[in-house]
């Protein structure tokens, strides 16, 4: 869309681990307030792409722009300031198992923003309620919660600091279909509520259709299709067609 403000933009991002070329020139952008879902099979570079944006992995070359600012070379306080714009829901939750639920949710507020523990506790309770969890879970440890509840806590942690951009890594993996749909609804609801831009990676097409404004497909470290979510069934791309049908027949050959 001409003139639309790009919140996040990746230009020719490349990353290799030894001889394994994971990202081979990723080009993609997300407009402010929009939700982009990147679909693709296992080992196609989805996770490395998202970790490159987050600064967990340093790209070999290319450019990652957030609000028009180059971020790949950021260090120290500049990197910290950048990170405060981000929220992230990890695939396995990645909750700190030695900390109670409320402290997990409020971690970024206490450590990153210097909010007092008392205020952080109140904010954590508010965020837990916003993802449908009662205040009584606040003092439990992550191991005492079910997988679905842990995912909700992860979501509460991701949105706790009211981030500009939220990343979702396989948000529905490991959940039953009903709980997966509940999480999808929560993701849409909380993201829209915050007015946040979101980048999700998944291979769950139901989740992708529900969350996305736009969908892109990554294959062998390159974006091979990018369009509106509504157009995914008429992409005209045989790779996308095979993926959304979940068919073994087609141009994508699985290595077994």
């Amino acid at each position: 869309m001409a003139g639309a403000v790009k919140k996040l933009e990746l230009k020719d991002v490349r990353k290799s681990f030894g001889a394994n070329h994971v990202l081979r020139g990723v080009n993609i952008s997300i407009e402010k307030g929009k939700s982009l879902v990147v679909i693709g099979g296992s080992g196609t570079g989805k996770s490395v792409m998202i970790k490159s944006v987050l600064g967990i992995v340093t790209p070999d070359s290319g450019s990652i722009l957030v609000d028009g600012q180059e971020t790949t070379k950021l260090k120290g306080k500049d990197r910290d300031a950048q990170m405060r714009k981000f929220g992230m829901l990890f695939q396995g939750g990645a909750l700190f198992d030695s900390l109670p639920i409320w402290e997990n949710v409020a971690f970024g507020l206490i450590q990153g923003k210097g909010v007092s523990r008392k205020d952080a506790y109140d904010l954590a309770i508010e965020k837990l309620r916003s993802v449908g969890l009662p205040s009584r879970v606040a003092k439990l440890l992550p191991a005492e919660l079910s997988g679905g509840m842990q995912k909700r806590v992860g979501l509460a942690r991701a949105i706790a600091a009211n981030p500009d951009i939220i990343f979702f890594d396989e948000p529905t993996t490991g959940l039953d279909p009903i709980m997966a749909d509940v999480i999808n609804d929560l993701i849409v609801e909380t993201s829209k509520g915050l007015g946040a831009t979101t980048l999700s990676i998944t291979h769950d097409m139901h989740s992708a259709r529900k969350i996305a404004d736009n969908i892109a497909m990554i294959y062998k470290g390159e974006i091979i299709w990018h369009g509106k979510a509504a157009d995914i069934d008429h992409s005209g791309n045989p790779y996308v067609d095979q993926f959304i049908k979940g068919s073994a027949e087609g141009p994508i050959k699985m290595e077994v």
């Binding site: 970790k51 987050l54 600064g55 967990i56 910290d80 990170m83 405060r84 981000f86 929220g87 992230m88 990890f90 695939q91 396995g92 990645a94 909750l95 700190f96 198992d97 971690f107 970024g108 450590q111 990153g112 923003k113 942690r157 990343f167």
Partner: peptide, 12 residues
């Protein structure tokens, strides 16, 4: 379990 990655995303 990606908790160290989570620390990074939480500005720590």
């Amino acid at each position: 379990t990606e908790q160290i990655d989570a620390l990074t995303t939480l500005s720590t």
